[in-house]
């Protein structure tokens, strides 16, 4: 019997000079992943956007726990969104959404 895959949830803070849509965030993370690790590497990530708030400039994404380092490196390497200087910071990482929200609130 195979075990349920372990996941990691990341709380991201988005810093940009413009308003950023949910699609922009997803696209920029995907393209950073593809740029750094290629299609094969990215296929191990299982990245999903869970939540996004345009007003509060934050997002929550989920990935495989084995690919956490890859996702974090990719997110760090983002320097622009839609051609405007931007940065995405990882505020907190957790194994459950509940714990993530608690950590991010601290």
């Amino acid at each position: 019997m195979s075990r349920r895959p372990r996941r990691r949830y990341l709380h991201l803070a988005i810093e940009s000079e413009q308003l950023v849509t949910e699609e922009d965030v997803t696209n920029s993370i995907w393209s950073a992943l593809l740029r750094l690790f290629g299609e094969y590497g990215t296929s191990h990530v299982n990245l999903t956007l869970i939540e996004y708030s345009r007003q509060r400039n934050y997002a929550i994404v989920r990935c495989s726990h084995k690919a956490l380092g890859m996702v974090r490196a990719s997110i760090t390497s983002i320097i622009e969104i839609n051609g405007k200087p931007s940065a995405i910071h990882v505020v907190a990482v957790s194994g459950t959404l509940k714990a993530l929200r608690r950590k991010a609130a601290m």
């Binding site: 810093e15 380092g69 974090r72 390497s77 940065a87 910071h89 990882v90």
Partner: peptide, 18 residues
């Protein structure tokens, strides 16, 4: 040199894996 190039220590540590 500017705010957008600044990252947290843990983010840099993740990038150093490269």
């Amino acid at each position: 040199k500017d705010l957008h190039a600044m990252r947290s220590p843990k983010d840099y540590a993740a990038l150093a894996a490269l």
